[in-house]
């Protein structure tokens, strides 16, 4: 399964925090299941790239951030946006191209952005967030705000040169940037071993960027690593690179149904049954007696109701008016 476990005890994270992270992961899972459903029922224009299976990374990272800290997200970005504080109704509205969406319907699934939660935007260019996130870290240092800036990206972005230009700048100037590589092992439809030479961690190491490998399915481990990276950033010690091993349960996008030609079914089954971040978390909660089953059931029921209501409100919301097409080109 090729993952490294540097898991701490749940008690190290704190019961309240663990339950909060469980809740956040579950919210993302339920959101994404509904996004998939909207696509399947042909109610959503375009496509979406689901984050199901990778929830622990966005949630563990954002748990260590303040609301004013920055993130950049990716085409597979719903989880990052929700974990950073986006509300599901405006998210669904944007997925459906509605005027009440985060981008007034002009962005869509791959471009959700929200200044109020420090979300600099999801980006549909692979590695496209690297410059923006590093620039936000530059601002934070220049203005002395103590904010940090997290750049989420998939292992596919390891092929983009600009990522290394940004890591070089961040290390040269000791910027509070955190590069979070979500290695779900597939660059679209190609296993990363076919695209990635050498050791991934040797790349940040070449720039002197502090780097560590994290079990991306263990939200406690992600949070602990995120907390270390955030402390480094805020205290002026410079950037961190976190390599998070993970797996996407679904295909590259919602329409990627037949995957046997690039990904074996038994591999999918193993990750879903043995390495699902939400099931793992439930296991720790139950084994360590941190909450009873009723509490988790109630949480799920509440979130289900919230997500269903969010879908309903987004479905009922109006599209933007045609005359809005020319608005927001220039500030």
């Amino acid at each position: 399964m090729n993952t490294v476990s540097n898991v701490k005890k749940s008690s190290d994270v704190g019961v309240d925090r663990l339950l909060h992270m469980y809740r956040q992961m579950l919210a993302i899972r339920l959101f994404e299941e509904r996004a998939n459903d909207l696509y399947t029922r042909a109610l959503m224009p375009g496509l979406a790239h689901l984050y199901i299976g990778e929830e622990a990374i966005a949630v563990g990272m954002c748990e260590a951030l303040d609301r004013s800290d920055y993130i950049t997200s990716t085409h597979r970005g719903h989880g990052h946006c929700l974990a950073k504080g986006a509300t599901p109704d405006r998210m669904f509205a944007e997925l459906l191209g509605k005027a009440s969406g985060y981008c007034k319907g002009k962005g869509g699934s791959m471009h959700i952005a929200d200044p109020a939660t420090g979300n600099l935007g999801a980006n549909a260019i692979v590695g496209g967030g690297a410059g923006i996130a590093t620039g936000a870290a530059f601002s934070a240092k220049y203005l002395g705000t103590k904010q940090v800036s997290v750049c989420f990206f998939g292992e596919g972005a390891l092929g983009q040169g600009v990522l290394y230009e940004e890591m070089n700048l961040a290390q040269l100037w000791k910027l509070p940037a955190i590069y979070v590589c979500e290695n779900n092992m597939y660059n679209e439809y190609t296993h990363y071993s076919e695209t990635t030479a050498g050791e991934i961690l040797a790349r940040p190491a070449a720039f002197g960027v502090a780097a560590e490998r994290v079990d991306g399915q263990d939200v406690r481990a992600v949070y602990a690593a995120a907390d270390r990276a955030v402390r480094r950033g805020r205290s002026g010690q410079g950037p961190t690179f976190l390599l998070c091993d993970t797996y996407r349960h679904h295909g590259h996008h919602v329409g990627d149904i037949s995957r046997e030609y690039y990904r074996p079914k038994d591999e999918e089954q193993r990750w879903m049954s043995e390495r699902d971040p939400i099931k793992l978390c439930e296991g720790w909660v139950s084994a360590e007696g941190l909450a009873d089953g009723d509490t988790l059931d109630r949480m799920r029921a509440e979130l289900t109701a919230t997500m269903d209501a969010a879908v309903q409100s987004a479905m009922a919301a109006p599209y933007p008016q045609p005359h809005e097409v020319d608005q927001d080109v220039y500030a």
């Binding site: 410059g131 590093t134 620039g135 936000a136 530059f138 230009e165 070089n168 700048l169």
Partner: peptide, 20 residues
């Protein structure tokens, strides 16, 4: 800057978004 046109331009974009 280093000779990294894409790198420092991208950094400039992010810096412009966040107060500079």
């Amino acid at each position: 800057t280093p000779i990294s046109e894409a790198g420092f331009t991208g950094l400039g974009v992010g810096a412009a978004m966040t107060g500079l």
